[in-house]
């Protein structure tokens, strides 16, 4: 019985290893996708949720509110092309959020969400934007840290 329990613990670990894929791209730090997530911080450190909020609400940096709405009462004219961000921290783990920000195409090739931390599969990138991801690794971590704090479902104070 003890052996059985150990085996049961072992199976998910093997599955996770089997699904893990390391990504190395020039111009971005390498990371490992495990299942539908990137468990490890891209910088090795935790992000700053306050800086993350500033990025999310900045329409020229994070661009998030062009498509997403969210619990930002001071922000007028939020987009509605994508799911509302209220409560996203309860629906997704930080590791899941990280992969969705870094390169959502890994989960859904047809996603309209930009890949914020990837330089592959892009065409005709404007001269001023070439060779750099939309957000830096540190900015990704800041946004992950902030989104993880959004734990109130929509419509609640």
């Amino acid at each position: 019985m003890r052996r059985g329990r150990r085996a049961a613990r072992f199976v998910p670990a093997v599955l996770a290893l089997a699904l893990a894929t390391a990504r190395a791209e020039e111009g971005v730090v390498s990371f490992t996708i495990v299942g539908d997530a990137i468990p490890a911080s891209l910088t090795g450190a935790s992000g700053d949720p306050n800086r993350g909020r500033a990025i999310v609400t900045d329409r020229t940096r994070g661009l998030c509110l062009l498509c997403h709405g969210g619990p930002f009462p001071e922000e007028r004219f939020q987009g509605n092309l994508a799911p509302d961000l209220a409560g996203i921290g309860t629906r997704r783990s930080p590791a899941q959020l990280r992969l969705r920000l870094v390169d959502g195409r890994a989960l859904n090739p047809d996603t309209i969400m930009p890949s914020y931390y990837s330089l592959t599969g892009l065409t005709r990138v404007g001269r001023v934007w070439q060779g750099r991801p939309i957000l830096s690794a540190a900015e990704i971590e800041d946004v992950v840290a902030f989104l993880a704090t959004l734990r109130e479902p929509e419509g609640r104070p």
């Binding site: 987009g79 509605n80 092309l81 309209i112 930009p114 599969g121 892009l122 934007w129």
Partner: peptide, 18 residues
């Protein structure tokens, strides 16, 4: 582009949205 969007994503598939 860097955002990986197409004209169609907005104007065919999401017209009417904001």
């Amino acid at each position: 582009g860097q955002l990986g969007l197409s004209c169609a994503i907005c104007h065919d598939e999401n017209w009417g949205r904001r």
